[in-house]
Design a protein around this nucleic acid. Structure first.
Lengths: 193, 193
DNA sequence: CCTACCGATCGGTAGG
DNA sequence: CCTACCGATCGGTAGG
């Protein structure tokens, strides 16, 4: 029977995600990380190549999840507004189930060095353009008001991405409520009537 | 005749705002700052007490502007929805006219130490509660749908605060368009249609 | 506003 | 995974 084994490397990644999110990447030292893991700082380098490698794993790990959810939404044969609601739901699902990584993703991607930085920006653009395309399609089909699609999507993203900051797993609002409320707020905001 | 004199201290503050926004507070060294100003690092301390003092000036300088716009909106004898639209417009006005400071405000307030940190959080709470109160009032008066007022305001704030990130002074959208589009998007989203 | 310098801390390596 | 240690850089001070 396969048991879920948390290797030391996993433990380092998980701890780093939490520390980076709490204090920020630049303010977290490898010595902080080592202490939380319970080993000496130098020992970290038996498991990771560098501090930035950890950041890369966190940022691209989440980026991959967003890309997968995009492809899922893309494959559906629905109207633009329905697809958009679905994509919002999927995005929030990723954020809520990766709270620490989401915080790091949003705040610390800037500290990636080349060529990771360029790759990261490209993935983000691709993802943003998918949403912008859906909004534009909704406008063309006269489902939405005639807004600036890019501006609307930026507004949406900022709302979605910061959920990690005020979401409490055992709080008043359940994940499903947040999803439905946010997509309603946004789609209603775009609606014509 | 009074001429606008930019003192060295002003120059340090302005340069710091820009560097902190571009690279982050923690990633900007006093040596970086000194070089951009054109003096030696040690000379900075003739004009400022510490690195954190600069951060405090930036954060509380902007917080004061937000508080002033809140008091302005509060003094109006209008309905909740109209007051909210006005408060949104005023908030965006502060952000757009303080782009660098807004970026620092949003990203780096965490690096304030006590007692500044507590004071900052208190001001922010007061400001947030003002907006939450307006949304709740709109709900009570049956002007808005019955949403979670706090969640709606967090959504609004995240949209408004990140304008600094994609606003281009000479871009497609003028400030007035951003204001009206964002408040329409939000108020329309809250409306019962 | 500068030169000269401080103690602390950083990411990371050597060698076992 | 540890001890021992590296060169670089940090915020900041002394003294002029």
């Amino acid at each position: 029977m396969a048991t879920a084994t948390v290797t030391r490397k996993d433990q380092i990644t998980i701890t780093a995600r939490n520390l980076f999110r709490e204090k920020g990447y630049k303010s977290t030292s490898m010595r902080d990380l080592a202490q939380c893991v319970g080993i000496e700082a130098a020992s970290l380098y038996s498991h990771v190549k560098s501090k930035e490698e950890i950041l890369q794993k966190i940022c691209f790990g989440l980026a991959d999840k967003f890309m997968a959810s995009m492809q899922d939404a893309q494959s559906k044969n629905w109207t633009a507004d329905k697809k958009l609601a679905y994509a919002i739901e999927k995005h929030i699902d990723v954020v809520v189930n990766n709270l620490d990584a989401s915080g790091v993703f949003i705040h610390d991607w800037k500290h990636l060095s080349e060529p990771s930085l360029t790759k990261f920006k490209q993935m983000r653009s691709k993802y943003e353009n998918f949403f912008i395309g859906l909004v534009q399609q909704g406008i063309d089909e006269k489902r939405f008001r005639n807004v600036n699609a890019k501006f609307a999507v930026m507004t949406l993203f900022n709302s979605m991405n910061w959920i990690y900051d005020h979401y409490k797993p055992n709080g008043k609002m359940k994940q499903s409520e947040i999803s439905s409320e946010l997509s309603l707020l946004f789609l209603n905001g775009l609606s014509k009537n």
